[in-house]
Simulated assay, not measured.
Amino acid sequence: MPEHHHRPPSALRLFLTNQSTGGLVLIGTAAVALLIANSALGPAYEALLSTYLGPMSVIHWINDGLMALFFLLVGLEIKREMVDGQLSTWSRRILPGVAALGGMAVPALLYLAFNSGPTARGWAIPAATDIAFALGVISLLGTRVPASLRVFLAALAIIDDLGAVIIIALFYTAKLSIIDLAGAAGVVALLFALNRRGVRRLAPYLLLGALLWLLVYRSGIHATLAGVLLALAIPMDGRPGQSDDESVSPLHRLEHALHIPVGFLIVPLFALANAGVPFLDLSLDALTAPVTLGVAAGLLLGKPLGVFGLSMLAVRLGLADAPAHASPWQMFGVALVCGIGFTMSLFIGLLAFPAAPILISEAKIGILAGSLLSGLLGYAVLRLAHSERMEQARQGA
């Protein structure tokens, strides 16, 4: 009898499972942060985050340091899907690509309809979808959501993340240090040289990656982008279906190693440090401030309009096929879920208004309100759409 090798689950299956469960953890962590910030523990919570550990405060170590690993994982996912996954051919990229483009442009325009002058700098806050949160909501519906829609959502969110990374690099970069930037470019060149020479051990890449993070941090570009640059240099050869670790691509090894700590430790820690908005200290004006309304409207209205509108247009024009076994109502439900913009939106909010705590608080309120309503409405529409399809199937039978 031929010997059968045990094949581990596919990267996409693990990705969807881990991200879905991580999303549920994230929901709980965000709730805890809000409770702490609005309790007697609030001042101690703020003091702890402001405490310095070496050159940076605790919140900066989380946002600039640990989140670089989140961006490393994002970069690995983008590269894998573009090379050997759901985004590996142009026909597969068209629908999620068009949807992601609409889902970034329309929320940004809606935000700008409410904001001008200094607050217009926050235009990109509602342009990002939180993949962990979104897949967490979808996971609550189980088999009521076709598998094709889960893959569509994952692909859309990955392209959306790529767009957010580009936006951060282009629009939210402080004054540049040319010397450090040149050093970072040199390290990136070394990383790609290792790749070209066929080096498959991860240690040299990770050591150079740590140096890259330091140089990017000092250069003025946001330090977390070092994670994406490192990801692009990690080799993706080998056969991910094999059980022998040495035959598995370095990219797959690193990606599988990062999923659990990023999804269940780093991103929840980021939420715990950044989602706590002390509502009791805010005036009622903060709830109706242009930043709050622009972010909430961008997520709740802009995301579904952009994602669903451009997706349906692409399908109608024959540029792309609709996801298999998915009704237009189910597509609309997924488009609503895309309005959950938690992690990346919070991150961009911090970059947009670094010296304006009140604007950051308003952005957080908009993010929390818009994301919560988007998640609830998306869940309700997907549940109703499934019931309608079941009823039609019964009548057809």
Rank of each mutant, 00 (worst) to 15 (best):
F270N: 11
L232H: 02
G263S: 15
V248T: 10
T224C: 14
F279C: 10
P250G: 06
R218C: 01
P235F: 13
F264I: 08
L230E: 03
A231D: 02
H325Y: 03
G209S: 05
P304F: 04
E246C: 03
A326Y: 01
E255K: 00
L293V: 14
L300T: 01
R253A: 11
G302F: 13
A324S: 09
A314L: 01
V307R: 04
G209C: 08
R316W: 06
A324E: 13
F279Y: 15
L229E: 12
V295P: 01
L317F: 03
A271K: 07
A223L: 02
S327C: 06
R239S: 14
D244A: 12
D321W: 00
P278K: 04
I234D: 05
A286E: 12
V228R: 08
L229C: 13
R316A: 14
P235N: 06
A226W: 02
A271H: 01
V216G: 03
A231K: 04
L280K: 09
G263Q: 03
G263R: 00
L305R: 10
P304C: 02
E255R: 00
G298R: 12
T224K: 13
V228Y: 05
F279W: 15
F279P: 09
S249Y: 09
L305W: 04
V291Q: 11
D285M: 04
G309V: 04
A210L: 15
L299A: 06
V277S: 10
F264W: 12
P290K: 07
L313C: 05
F264Q: 02
G318T: 01
H252M: 10
A320V: 00
A231H: 05
V277Y: 14
G241Q: 13
L225F: 08
S283L: 11
H256G: 11
L282R: 12
A226P: 05
Q242R: 15
G306F: 06
A226I: 04
L212I: 08
A289H: 15
P250C: 07
R253D: 13
Y217V: 01
H222K: 10
A271D: 00
A223N: 05
L300A: 08
V228W: 05
A223P: 06
P250Y: 06
I260T: 14
T224R: 11
V216L: 03
L280V: 15
L206I: 12
L206F: 04
M312K: 01
T288A: 13
P261F: 14
W213Y: 09
G241I: 02
F270I: 08
H256M: 11
L284G: 10
L317Y: 00
L232A: 15
F308G: 02
F308V: 02
A297E: 04
L258R: 12
G309K: 09
L305P: 07
G227T: 05
H252S: 14
S327T: 15
A257D: 09
G238W: 09
G238T: 09
G309W: 09
D245K: 08
L254F: 00
P250N: 03
V248H: 07
V248E: 13
I260Y: 13
E246T: 14
A210C: 09
N274V: 05
V248S: 06
L269N: 08
A231L: 07
P290D: 10
L272D: 01
L251V: 08
S243H: 04
A320S: 02
L300F: 13
L269E: 11
L212K: 08
A326E: 10
A296E: 06
A297L: 12
S249E: 05
L207N: 05
Q242D: 15
H252N: 15
L251Y: 05
